[in-house]
């Protein structure tokens, strides 16, 4: 990375305030590299985990939201578990993904958010994940129509995929959660 440290006026205070409110102390990082060393997906990242933490401390929100890394992070919590400074790195990745979606930043790994949204759509509808609906929804939205066809048929053949969704009874409370409960206070 050839970026130099940003001058203060470019630092995004709202972003840093948000991290502080979530208890994510990116300024505590002394770049030991432990987070990146243990990350199982690091070979596929465009920014290493350690770079994500440092760019966050610089307030370089745009670079982070446009990265592949935020979508390829598997949320395995290895980095945060091992960070000697107790930085909640996996939670930082959560904040970045949520911000990227809210700001409609074009995702560098489009299929990943499409998968998450298909999954959430299924829960919003049924209150529970319905695998067949999820797979069909993901395939339609991502355009990845043929991928994993064999696997899907194999699972179906083994009776692992049921054709009937299980649904919760109290759907109104699920809908409330999905239509912004808690967001009334803009946090």
């Amino acid at each position: 990375m050839n970026q130099s440290i940003d001058t203060s006026e470019k630092i995004h205070h709202k972003f840093l305030d948000k991290l502080q409110a979530r208890g994510i102390d990116v300024h505590a990082c002394f770049q030991c590299g432990r987070c990146s060393a243990g990350c199982p997906v690091t070979g596929f990242f465009d920014l290493t985990t350690m770079e994500v933490v440092r760019l966050a401390a610089y307030g370089r929100e745009e670079d982070l939201l446009a990265s592949k890394t935020i979508w390829l992070c598997a949320a395995c919590e290895t980095c945060a578990t091992r960070c000697p400074n107790d930085i909640e790195i996996a939670a930082l990745m959560d904040v970045l993904r949520e911000l990227a979606l809210r700001k409609k930043t074009v995702p560098a790994e489009p299929r990943v958010p499409v998968f998450h949204q298909s999954f959430l759509q299924s829960i919003r509808h049924w209150g529970r994940a319905y695998e067949v609906g999820l797979i069909v929804g993901y395939k339609l939205r991502s355009g990845d129509l043929l991928g994993d066809m064999k696997l899907g048929l194999q699972m179906f053949g083994k009776g692992k995929l049921s054709l009937r969704p299980h649904s919760v009874k109290d759907k109104t409370v699920i809908e409330k959660i999905f239509s912004g409960q808690g967001k009334e206070y803009e946090r």
Partner: peptide
């Protein structure tokens, strides 16, 4: 009775409120 999905990875990875409120119920 009437448990709902915990939200799995997809919920907390993309929405703090939904990712918490689903398991909270």
């Amino acid at each position: 009775p009437d448990w709902n999905c915990c939200g799995a990875s997809s919920a907390h990875m993309t929405s703090h409120e939904i990712g918490m409120r689903l398991p909270l119920r």
